[in-house]
Design a binder for these strands. Structure first.
Lengths: 233, 233
DNA sequence: GGCACGTTTCGGCCGCCGCCGAAGCGTGAA
DNA sequence: TTCACGCTTCGGCGGCGGCCGAAACGTGCC
């Protein structure tokens, strides 16, 4: 009905609807900023083509740009954009139930553990959510999640200051549907706090130029001991 | 990186990225099922063109179809799809901060009150969320929302059986960013329960062939008395 | 059976948009 | 100043995809 909205919707859709642009957006989905050249490489296109795409994405407000010398750094403009892309990926995964899915090595690692803007996803993300739920630390459902009093104590003991994450509200634990596992993992400020803490502890590390995350040997032991998670290498 | 994902993402994007298809999806966003002909009319295209679009959307799993005599009824395939479209609309509204926005009458009414798949949005939706938060019935934040014990009692008194909405979990109150108000309203099972109850009471009614919702005179008085909401006519 | 109607299939036209080569601009290093 | 490098702009080519007219299919009504 409201043609103006449908037009805007179509506009955003068609921006994401190009393979090259979708590849660039996917590459930016871990929240870091990349240069125009890096993004061109990600999308396997020439710099001049990428430049055009990036200009469009920026004009539409999906990307933010920052100049640093002769490099132009692009990142997702907001968490809102990241949420949108995540929700689109969920639909991709859910509706194409059994498409031909070439199980490349990088895909396999992505399924195992990856960053999802500012929190963890994949088998690792879901395992963590399960472990916290099993211990009665969080209460997850499709509509929302909350940290229990027991959970506050437990997380504090682990080194995460729950109160600092969100001083006022009791609900800062958003469930986020995992496109590979098709189950919920923990997003929101707790998700971010959890991921940050695991990075700080050296339990997990990023793989260069990718959203893939690897669990270190220390992390393996830590996850086993703290959360009873047996993460496959 | 993972080319397979980016391709799927682009696929979904380009499906939404066509103006005609976007209009049809927007029309279906209130959760009802419409016939192919009605959808063609919504998108201002001929039936044969619409048929092609609908076939694509169905093949991709965005729409579900049900035959009834010679009519083919289409609806959004899942809540997941509705969530995706909502999150895309939020991005539309947020990024184009001050686009030329022709304030048509229908747009004005949409901003005032509309259905959002299965719950309420617009000024009305946000007012309700505000009122419930002000009374300490719910606890909303960007990451999640929960109903307090006080809220359970209050809603029960109003005629909504909170326990029946979700027997186990305490969090069934999802915040949903309103694209017109740019603030949160209440979604999730509580959002649906609330909307359903207001329809049952006859406080609100749907406007034919649109997502617009009107508050009845009875509703005006009821909202004023129960929630201290002064909804403009 | 005959007709009306809603929907789909087919075929061909047309326009938009992504792509790259070449060239131009701004920045940093020598 | 000169060069190298990253990024952008311009111009032209090519293909994908949306659009409609015509016609076929299936269903319900008379």
């Amino acid at each position: 009905m409201t043609t103006v909205n449908a037009m805007n919707l179509a506009e955003v859709g068609s921006l994401v609807g190009d393979v090259a642009r979708a590849q660039m957006l996917t590459a930016l989905l871990d929240g870091r900023a990349l240069t125009a050249g890096e993004l061109a490489w990600c999308a396997r296109i020439t710099p001049q083509t990428a430049s055009g795409h990036l200009a469009k994405l920026q004009a539409a407000g999906l990307l933010a740009m920052e100049k640093q010398g002769r490099h132009h750094y692009f990142r997702l403009a907001s968490r809102t954009v990241a949420n949108m892309l995540e929700s689109m990926q969920v639909v991709c995964a859910v509706d194409a139930p059994r498409r031909i899915r070439p199980e490349s090595r990088i895909d396999k690692e992505m399924r195992l553990a990856r960053s999802c803007y500012d929190h963890l996803a994949g088998v690792l993300g879901v395992s963590l959510a399960d472990a916290l739920a099993r211990q009665g630390a969080v209460d997850l459902s499709a509509d929302g999640g909350m940290v229990t009093d027991k959970g506050r104590a437990l997380l504090a003991g682990f080194g995460i200051d729950v109160d600092a994450l969100d001083a006022r509200k009791r609900c800062f634990c958003r469930p986020c549907l995992d496109w590979s596992e098709r189950r919920h993992h923990i997003a929101g400020s707790l998700g971010k706090g959890l991921a940050d803490h695991l990075f700080d502890l050296g339990w997990i590390t990023r793989v260069k130029d990718s959203r893939v995350i690897r669990v270190t040997p220390t992390g393996q032991r830590g996850l086993e001991k703290t959360f009873a998670i047996d993460h496959p290498a």
